[in-house]
Design a protein around this nucleic acid. Structure first.
Length: 683
DNA sequence: AGCACGCCGACT
DNA sequence: GTCGGCGTGCTC
């Protein structure tokens, strides 16, 4: 019997610096294998998973290897999913198959069709019909006028919406109602939050409200089996709600009806390794492709989002009031210049009036939250005799003094040693901490406020699973008077008894070289302020203190009035003048080598290849420079900024340029890694 | 990236 | 004599 062979294109995991980014051709005996089908194909001497893709017209290579296995029990990945993945691969300059397979649950790639059939059958059996009938009325609080208007607008037409409101203004309630409307129409809902830490409380809120609906989470904290199960329920259309972190933007959702990205300004939505995608930007694209509304929620929108609102491309839905008539805490800028100068070091951790204010809170049984974005005891140790400092031998960074275990730790490469007893250079015994981290602040508060119950929450105290929950529990239970922590505590957690929030030392971000530093600081401080006075009855006497040496800085002036719009206007003006996003499109080319000169030469040669073309397109390629931390783990890094007036020009340039990079790399021995970051967060 | 092939040093 | 070092090259 004659067997007809057809040619199919299959996206397989081929790292792009091999030059193979596009799908490969295979022969198949199964006619009409639909795009989106999961298959296994031979690649070199291996057999790898792949996804059938559209085949662009053109000649197939003469000798084709056959598709080994068709995983027919899994419904094909849909057209809009493939379009999303195709767009993301092209936009972020990664191989299609590499991205497509990277965003599937890792466990899925290991299964053959028999195992898969069994898993799917088991899922259908386990997932009994929901306990309550769908369509139960929502039993939440009544919406205010603005909330109702927002829900109606979202339900009325697809498009991108900025849900603009401060902490406590009721954004989640709008998500819940918009979700209910989408669910009632038989659609699935995707809700994304920036951090895993925030998924449990979101899940609890949605689970409580949608008792009759099937809800799954998708984030990297799940076990491989859970992740597969949840992904599968979404893909099969059995899950109604998917809550997750940035990776959930790639969930396969055949009935998608609404996408929410909460805290859309948060930098965590940008993936920082591999394909460096922005889940927020992809959510907007996905909403556009699928014709569903996308809701971006924030009190302090990213300037990219805000500019699109000003241009009328996104619609702003404002929630101007805190629910229950609460007001935002009064912001008090404390001028550190008014303190008597102390000889030598940093001066007191907390200004005496702030200590007094905290003491009053303790007396009244209220809580205070002190925010210091630097963990450890002191960021650096130094010798008072010879000037030695605790540098990392492997990185261009200081090693941080951790008093708890008496260690010097590099926060970049992890290199850790016990604190030396004496100066390693001159033997002097007098080595002193410089500056202050959360550990030292905790110690100093105990001295300033004897008897106060102080707790510290940062990456060091929450290392083990469940410890964050335990510590937050202690705060909720009222076992803590003063909570000290890094930005970890500024985000999302809903504290009820906090009436004072203080930023201990926020100034450094004012003058950072990173052009987004002010935006991040403003948003962090607004978010921190939002921790105070969530109980309306306490709100009136809630305060946010900012200790600063620059009390007249415009950022603080805007913060004091809780005036995001004024702050944004000022920033946008600066960005426009400087030719920075959202008024320009950026990409960053990075290279790593043992010697900075090698990385630099590689980037220079790369620039030379397209210099003329770039100029003709109005694209500027800046000379390679070392990043802020130039050397990490004995590897030197260099980066080269590419700036374009438009996205389109940047995309065209990169698409033609990057394929040349792997041949160029072969000529530059010693280049360990290189990568491109489209729309980088920091430059 | 894997995973081969390929040509030179210390071991059962 | 072979186990294995990682240099170079390929994957429809």
């Amino acid at each position: 019997m004659q067997v007809d062979l057809v040619t199919v294109a299959v996206a397989v995991e081929t790292p792009q610096h091999t030059g193979l980014g596009a799908p490969l051709d295979y022969a198949s005996t199964a006619p009409g294998l639909p795009p989106g089908t999961l298959v296994r194909v031979p690649l070199g001497r291996r057999e790898v998973p792949g996804i059938v893709w559209e085949r662009p017209p053109g000649d197939a290579p003469p000798e084709l290897k056959p598709v080994r296995e068709v995983l027919a029990s899994l419904p094909p990945l849909g057209d809009s999913w493939r379009q999303l993945v195709g767009f993301a691969a092209a936009y972020y300059q990664r191989g299609l198959g590499e991205l497509a397979l990277a965003v599937l649950p890792p466990e899925l790639r290991k299964l053959d069709d028999v195992q898969l059939t069994r898993r799917i059958a088991r899922l259908h059996r386990a997932e009994a019909p929901p306990a309550a009938a769908p369509g139960d009325p929502l039993h939440g609080p009544a919406l205010n006028d603005e909330q109702r208007a927002a829900v109606e607008a979202i339900g009325a037409a697809p498009g991108t919406y900025l849900l603009h409101g401060v902490t406590g203004s009721g954004k989640t309630e709008v998500y819940l109602h918009a979700a209910e409307a989408a669910l009632a129409a038989g659609r699935q809902v995707l809700v994304m939050v920036p951090e895993i830490n925030l998924t449990p409380q979101l899940e609890a809120r949605f689970a409580e409200r949608f008792a009759g609906r099937r809800l799954v989470s998708l984030h990297s904290g799940l076990t491989p089996a859970q992740r597969l199960r949840h992904w599968m329920l979404a893909h099969l259309g059995a899950a109604d709600l998917v809550l997750g972190t940035r990776l959930a933007v790639f969930a396969s959702l055949p009935r998608l009806g609404l996408i929410v990205a909460d805290e859309e300004h948060d930098p965590s939505f940008k993936q920082q390794e591999g394909a460096r995608y922005s889940a927020r930007d992809l959510a907007v694209y996905r909403g556009h492709v699928e014709g569903v509304p996308v809701v971006l929620g924030s009190a302090t929108p990213s300037l990219e989002t805000w500019q699109r609102v000003l241009e009328g491309r996104y619609r702003r839905l404002a929630l101007p009031q805190r629910i229950g008539g609460g007001v935002l805490p009064r912001v008090r800028l404390f001028d550190m210049n008014t303190l008597p100068r102390q000889r030598g070091s940093a001066g007191p951790a907390l200004a005496p009036p702030l200590v007094q204010a905290i003491a009053e809170r303790i007396e009244r049984g209220e809580q205070s939250l002190l925010f210091l974005n630097r963990r450890g005891y002191a960021p650096v140790l130094h010798c008072t005799a010879c000037g030695w400092k605790s540098g990392c031998p492997h990185c261009s960074a200081w090693r941080v003094f951790h008093k708890g275990d008496r260690s010097l730790r590099c926060h970049h490469c992890g290199f850790t040693e016990r604190v030396p007893r004496a100066c390693p250079d001159c033997g002097n015994l007098d080595i002193a901490p410089l500056g202050r981290g959360t550990e030292r602040l905790e110690e100093q508060i105990a001295e300033l406020l004897p008897g106060a119950r102080v707790a510290r929450i940062d990456a060091d105290t929450t290392r083990t699973k469940g410890s964050l929950e335990a510590q937050l529990g202690a705060v909720h239970a009222g076992d803590v008077d003063v909570l000290v922590g890094t930005q970890m505590i500024a985000k999302g957690h809903d504290f009820r008894r906090i009436t004072l929030v203080a930023a201990v030392n926020p100034d450094s971000a004012l003058f950072a070289s990173d052009f987004r530093a002010p935006e991040r600081l403003f948003s962090l401080l607004m978010q921190a302020a939002g921790r105070a006075g969530r109980d309306a009855e306490q709100a009136a006497r809630s305060e946010m203190w900012v200790q600063t040496w620059h009390p007249r800085h415009t950022l603080y002036a805007a913060l004091r009035r809780h005036d995001y719009e004024a702050f944004a206007a000022g920033q946008l003006e600066e960005r426009l003048a400087a030719g920075l996003p959202p008024f320009a499109s950026l990409a960053l080319l990075r290279a790593e080598a043992r010697e900075a000169a090698v990385a630099q030469a590689f980037l220079r040669a790369a620039a030379e290849r397209v210099q003329a073309q770039a100029e003709s397109m109005g694209v500027t390629i800046y000379p390679p420079v070392p990043p802020p931390v130039a050397r990490v783990a004995d590897v030197d890094r260099m980066q080269m900024l590419v700036e374009s007036p438009t996205r389109g020009a940047l995309q065209r340039l990169l698409a033609g340029w990057l394929p040349q990079m792997h041949t160029l790399r072969a000529q530059h021995k010693g280049v360990l890694r290189w990568a491109v970051d489209v729309d980088p967060l920091a430059i």
